[in-house]
């Protein structure tokens, strides 16, 4: 009997049965921030992947005669870059790279981290201690440093970028999932199941993972956002995917030499695109977190 919080408890009897997952989806869509993020992301995806069909441009060949044209000139809505390529079209193509690497690497990191963390947290003992020291060691090396070293060792392509970023950034989700698994393991419903003679496999797959999924999904969206930023950093520092492929970070890096010439269209579109896409994922993550937490409060 808790009398501490004056909670207006009502014996609500909703007629239709609403499962926890469906309730979450509902709460998610009721969250204005989350929906904004989702719409923004959909628009950006359309822009990058469908945009080139509407606004076809030549991103392979240089047109030095048309270099550094201001926006609006000669049918280039956002002008051209220093070798005469259409900036709007380049933004679309570059966005494809950024999004592909970011999403794939974020998901890869989440997958590795979830498995690693769940095993460590559920098993406990010395195995847990060793696995977590490995995570500590990985976290101690700043991701960007490791990425730059890797970029000098392996020739950067989309695939290697995905693999490397994925392998560098799984550490945070591993920590989170491990903490979750550790606390779920001692919860009464897992204990009750063990007392019935249930197996470890059932404990992990039927109880621990479904209950940790909230943390995992929320973190995955932040992971994707971080991965997109990392890609941009590496490219900005000149060690991203090799030309003619490009991404938003590389476009910005290219534009930096023209800061004093007032060629703003070489800097701002790419920068703003990065902000928009990262914000979109962060909005979705915040919205998801809210809907998961309301579920916890509702109990």
């Amino acid at each position: 009997m808790t009398a501490s919080v004056p909670s207006p408890v009502v014996a609500a009897q909703p007629a239709p049965v609403v499962g926890p997952y469906r309730r979450m989806v509902r709460l998610f869509f009721a969250n204005r921030l989350a929906v904004t993020g989702l719409v923004l992301l959909a628009l950006l995806l359309l822009f990058c992947f469908v945009g080139p069909l509407v606004h076809p441009t030549d991103q392979i060949h240089t047109q030095l005669a048309d270099a550094n044209l201001a926006p609006g000139v000669k049918g280039h809505p956002l002008g051209t870059d220093d070798v005469g390529r259409d900036v709007l079209g380049r933004l679309m193509v570059g966005g494809q790279t950024s999004l592909e690497i970011g999403i794939a690497a974020g998901l890869l990191a989440t997958l590795i981290g979830t498995v690693w963390g769940a095993v460590a947290g559920y098993t406990g003992g010395w195995l847990d201690a060793i696995m977590m020291r490995v995570v500590d060691a990985g976290i101690a090396i700043p991701a960007l440093f490791l990425l730059l070293v890797s970029a000098t060792i392996f020739r950067p392509t989309v695939t290697t970028q995905i693999l490397i970023i994925g392998c560098v950034s799984w550490l945070v989700p591993a920590r989170l999932v491990r903490a979750e698994a550790l606390s779920l393991r001692s919860r009464d419903f897992v204990q009750a199941m063990m007392a019935m003679g249930g197996s470890h496999r059932r404990a992990v797959f039927r109880h621990i993972i479904p209950n940790a999924i909230g943390t995992v999904v929320v973190n995955a969206t932040f992971q994707v956002a971080d991965a997109i930023l990392l890609v941009a950093y590496v490219s900005f520092l000149g060690l991203g995917v090799a030309p003619p492929a490009t991404d938003w970070g590389a476009m910005l890096s290219n534009g930096i030499s023209y800061t004093y010439d007032g060629y703003w269209w070489l800097i701002f579109p790419a920068g703003i695109a990065i902000i928009l896409v990262v914000s979109a994922f962060n909005c979705i993550g915040d919205g998801l977190r809210d809907s998961f937490e309301v579920r916890l409060q509702g109990r």
């Binding site: 950093y233 970070g249 800097i267 990065i274």
Partner: peptide, 22 residues
């Protein structure tokens, strides 16, 4: 704050350069 969270440091640095140095 939300936008600040999503802004790459180098873009931020460039904006600062454009505003306070140029």
């Amino acid at each position: 704050v939300f936008i600040g969270y999503a802004t790459p440091v180098f873009f931020l640095a460039l904006i600062l350069v454009i505003v306070f140095a140029e």
